[in-house]
C-alpha cells in the first residue's frame, strides 16, 4: 500500500514537472526549426535538423542587438541606483532614531496597496516635461527607490548588532563611513536579493517600457518582442527564437542566484 502511494506521488510530481517544462522545450525546439516546420500536425517536439537562421536574422536584420543592449543597460542601471537608495533608506529606518519613524514607515507600507497603474499617466506627463521620455532614465529614475526595497533592507538591517555601529562611532567614523564600511558589507546577502528582484523585475517589465519608449530604437526586449509578434504573426520559429533570447539572460541570472531569490520571497511574505 505504502509502495503504491509512493509511486503515485512520484508519478504526479514528474507529471507536473513535464507540464511545467513542456512549453520551454517546445519554444527552444521550434526556434531551431526551418520556417514553417513548427506548424505541422502532429506537433513536433524536436527539430529534424538544426536551423540557426532565425537567430541570425533577428540579430542582423531586426535590430535585436540594440534591444538586448537597451534591456541590459536599463536593468543594470535600475539595479545599481535602487540598491544605493533603498539600502540607505532601509538602514535609516532600522537603526536611526528620529521622531515619527514608526508612523512614517507604517504609512509607507500601507500605501503599497495602491496599484501602481494609478500613477502611470501623471508620471508619464512628469517625465515628458522633464524631457526624459525615450531615454533610459524614463525607466531607471522612477524605479530608483521602492517601498518594498526599503522594507526588505530594513528587515535585514535589524539583525545588525547596535554594538557594531557604536564601536565604529567610538572610532570616530561618520554616519556615511559607517554605512559604507560596516553596513553595506554586512548587508551583502540582502543586497544580492534586492538586486536580483530589481534586475529581473526591470528586465521582465512590459507595461511601463511600452508607455515611455515610443521610439523603436529605445525598445526593451519584451516591447520589441511584442511588437515583432504583431508584425510577424506567421513567423512562429523566429518569434520563438526571440522569446529564447528574451528569457535566457534572466534565467541565467536566476539560476546562478536562486537561493537569494527564494529567501527574498520568504522575507517579503513575513509580516510584522
Amino acid at each position: 500500500m505504502a509502495k503504491v502511494k509512493k509511486y503515485l506521488v512520484l508519478a504526479l510530481v514528474i507529471f507536473v514537472a513535464v507540464i511545467t517544462f513542456l512549453p520551454f522545450l517546445w519554444m527552444v525546439s521550434a526556434s531551431f526549426m526551418p520556417t514553417g516546420a513548427s506548424n505541422t500536425y502532429p506537433p513536433k517536439l524536436f527539430p529534424e535538423k538544426f536551423d540557426f537562421s532565425h537567430y541570425q536574422v533577428l540579430f542582423s536584420r531586426l535590430n535585436l542587438t540594440r534591444y538586448l543592449l537597451n534591456s541590459i543597460i536599463i536593468s543594470l542601471g535600475a539595479t545599481f541606483f535602487s540598491l544605493f537608495l533603498n539600502s540607505m533608506g532601509g538602514y535609516a529606518f532600522a537603526k536611526f532614531r528620529f521622531s515619527k519613524k514608526e508612523s512614517l514607515f507604517k504609512f509607507l507600507l500601507s500605501s503599497m496597496i495602491i496599484p501602481g497603474q494609478v500613477t502611470m499617466l501623471p508620471v508619464f506627463l512628469l517625465l515628458k516635461n522633464m524631457g526624459l521620455i525615450n531615454t533610459y532614465w524614463a525607466i531607471i529614475v522612477p524605479g530608483m527607490a521602492s517601498i518594498f526595497g526599503i522594507f526588505l533592507i530594513r528587515q535585514y538591517a535589524f539583525s545588525i548588532p547596535d554594538s557594531m555601529i557604536e564601536a565604529a562611532k567610538m572610532d570616530g567614523a561618520t554616519e556615511l563611513q559607517i554605512y559604507l564600511k560596516v553596513i553595506l558589507p554586512l548587508c551583502k546577502p540582502i543586497l544580492v536579493t534586492l538586486g536580483l528582484f530589481t534586475f529581473m523585475g526591470t528586465w521582465n517589465d512590459f507595461l511601463w517600457p511600452l508607455i515611455v519608449m515610443t521610439d523603436s530604437n529605445m525598445y526593451t526586449l519584451p516591447v520589441a518582442l511584442a511588437n515583432l509578434s504583431s508584425e510577424h504573426v506567421q513567423d512562429t520559429e523566429m518569434l520563438m527564437a526571440g522569446s529564447v533570447i528574451t528569457i535566457v539572460p534572466v534565467l541565467i541570472v536566476f539560476l546562478a542566484l536562486q537561493k537569494y531569490y527564494i529567501k527574498g520571497i520568504m522575507m517579503g511574505s513575513v509580516k510584522e
Binding site: T20, L22, W26, M27, T40, P43, A226, M240, V250, L251
Partner: peptide, 27 residues
C-alpha cells in the same frame, strides 16, 4: 523546475502559449 515559469518574461511566455493554443497545430 516548478519555479522556472515564475521568473520568465510575461511577453515571451504569452507568445509561446499563443502557439501552444493554436487550434490546428497547437500542442
Amino acid at each position: 523546475i516548478y519555479f522556472l515559469p515564475v521568473v520568465t518574461t510575461h511577453v515571451a511566455v504569452a507568445i509561446v502559449w499563443r502557439y501552444i493554443y493554436h487550434p490546428r497545430f497547437g500542442l
